[in-house]
Amino acid sequence: MREMFVAGLQVDEEASEHLLVLQEREGKRGLALWIGAPEAVAIAVEQQGTRPERPLTHSLLGDTVQAFGRSLERVIITDLREGTFYAELVFDGDVRVSARPSDSVALALNLGVAIHAEEAVLDEAGVLVVTESDRDTDAEGADAEEEVRQFREFLDSATPEDFGSN
């Protein structure tokens, strides 16, 4: 199991789809998940640290968990079946609840808990993510830059069918 972080959130205006990109905290692989607009808004709100006047659904769930004296320990992207990613919320006492990855990520950001992905999911759906520092330290910088260009080009032209659904 690998710890992940939200590396990006992109919008495909034409398809009205949103792409959530998770990246390994200590590694070079990422996961690209197509998510709905409400889930993208929830994630963006948490990333920006803004608080709406009334709680969004993921905030309400987080408040409810805390009101009952429980704690969310982490979320895990557990599986990829027929193009659909699956996740679990892992609470104290190892209580697990199945959830959509997009909702799980929004809740994790809200409560400040770690996001993980199973190694098998990364092996199956992971893509190589090259950063600026990789390009700076890579002896083959031009090749790395070309890989980044191709990956960005792919993301710009990707459709939900390329990844499956959340």
Rank of each mutant, 00 (worst) to 15 (best):
G62W: 06
S133K: 03
A142I: 15
F154K: 03
D103W: 11
P38T: 08
E145S: 14
A106C: 04
S165H: 06
D123T: 04
T64G: 09
T159D: 04
A44E: 14
E161S: 10
G93C: 11
G126K: 01
M4W: 02
A120F: 03
V121P: 02
A37I: 11
G62N: 06
L9S: 04
D156L: 11
D79G: 00
G112V: 04
V105S: 05
L109E: 03
T131K: 10
V65F: 09
T84K: 02
S71D: 13
V113Y: 05
A15W: 15
D143N: 06
Q10G: 08
L19Y: 15
Q10N: 02
G126L: 11
R81D: 06
L122W: 14
E132N: 03
S71F: 12
A87M: 10
L20T: 02
A42D: 07
A158C: 13
A87T: 11
L61E: 01
A106T: 07
D63W: 05
E145N: 08
P52T: 08
L72G: 04
E147K: 07
E119M: 07
N110P: 04
V65M: 05
A142K: 07
E3V: 07
G49K: 03
D123R: 08
F91E: 06
R152D: 10
L72R: 01
L107C: 05
H116T: 14
I35K: 03
A42T: 13
D94M: 13
G83W: 09
G62T: 09
P55F: 09
V6R: 00
S71K: 10
I43V: 12
V127P: 00
V75M: 12
G62V: 01
A158N: 13
E73K: 07
D63N: 12
G36N: 07
L80S: 13
